[in-house]
Design a protein around this nucleic acid. Structure first.
Lengths: 200, 200
DNA sequence: CCTACCGATCGGTAGG
DNA sequence: CCTACCGATCGGTAGG
């Protein structure tokens, strides 16, 4: 792994643990056994590190969403697949998404506006999908917008509590949350090929 | 409103908007048209402000939870009521809960441990309630723990997007989310006295 | 990749 | 409630 990648990975760990402003360039450098000024051979500024991780995580989320929709067979399956992708992403990249959600005020313009616009696009794509399901008559939901917010936040929260060494795997949690998502939009006749979850 | 209260309210607004470490004592003082050192006639330290708001919000959430359970008629009604209380609290005190969720790394020991313990107690009380419903046979849920996380996070997210001047009132959102919560735990035969939601 | 160093800003105190 | 001021730390640069 290149030094530049090492720095970026360490920054993600420390930003997630201590916050962006609670992490100094010296903290990052010390963790890699070098001095702070040496970092500037590999990056322009501390703000660059934050911009890369926050914009990167949204690009990645949107890519997963598009891929899930492409692979889907119908709207119900599409919602299940994007729900799984959303939850899995938050279980597998908890540090990155924590930074993306918490450090919006630390992100300077114009990157902040860009991030917020990507977030808007992402939830818009979700709303569009739910809307299609309503039009097709496979979903029954009082407010698509509220339903989408509920589903998204449920997945986002996973980043805060999921532990790989816990009793449930990320796939099990993602499957279960996808079931909740389908219930939330009032999808009926759900083809359930999901194995039963262990208690707890 | 006393100067001390003014300072605390302004701190909450600025901590939520700019983050704890992104807000200087000078920022708070300037917004009140005084100088930074004058703040110290009303508080011990900047950290005190953070401790008061983060511990206060958890005390308040737990109080609301207990009251909702006391007023409830049975376990299904209890889950509906605590869900409503949880969502309403996040809609009505968005700044406080945002700080409580984002600034955990900024909170120094031992307050941080105290906060985390209160959060654990809070979700434990929720899990206990869901567990009772399962034992009574009124809930059907694969994993009480996951169901509780899903419900809690759904409500927490409200603080990030709810706007009082939006198309839906906080009460409407709380009622709707309580319905989703009941679906999440597989509560059946839900007595629905909730008025239909406006689309969008 | 290092040492030496810069100006700016921070939380907080002294003293009135 | 103010001015004057403190030591510490910050992101970043110069120069090698």
């Amino acid at each position: 792994m290149s030094r530049s990648e090492q720095i970026r990975e360490m920054a993600i760990v420390l930003f997630a643990r201590q916050g962006y402003r609670g992490t100094s360039m010296k903290d990052i450098a010390s963790a890699l056994n070098i001095r702070a000024p040496s970092l500037y051979n590999h990056l322009e500024s501390k703000q660059d590190l934050l911009r890369d991780v926050t914009l990167g995580v949204m690009r990645s989320l949107m890519r997963d969403f598009d891929q899930a929709v492409e692979e889907a067979d119908g709207t119900v399956d599409a919602l299940r697949r994007v729900s799984i992708a959303h939850t899995l992403h938050h279980a597998r990249h908890p540090d990155e998404v924590k930074i993306g959600n918490r450090e919006i005020p630390s992100l300077e313009m114009p990157a902040r506006a860009e991030l917020l616009d990507m977030r808007r696009q992402y939830s818009e794509a979700w709303k569009q999908l739910v809307h299609e399901g309503v039009e097709e008559g496979v979903f029954e939901v009082a407010s698509p917008k509220l339903a989408v917010f509920a589903i998204l936040e449920m997945g986002i929260g996973v980043a805060n509590w999921y532990r790989p060494d816990g009793p449930l795997s990320d796939v099990e949690i993602a499957d279960y949350f996808a079931e909740i998502a389908l219930r939330t939009v009032g999808a009926v006749d759900i083809p359930s090929d999901v194995p039963p979850l262990a208690q707890q």
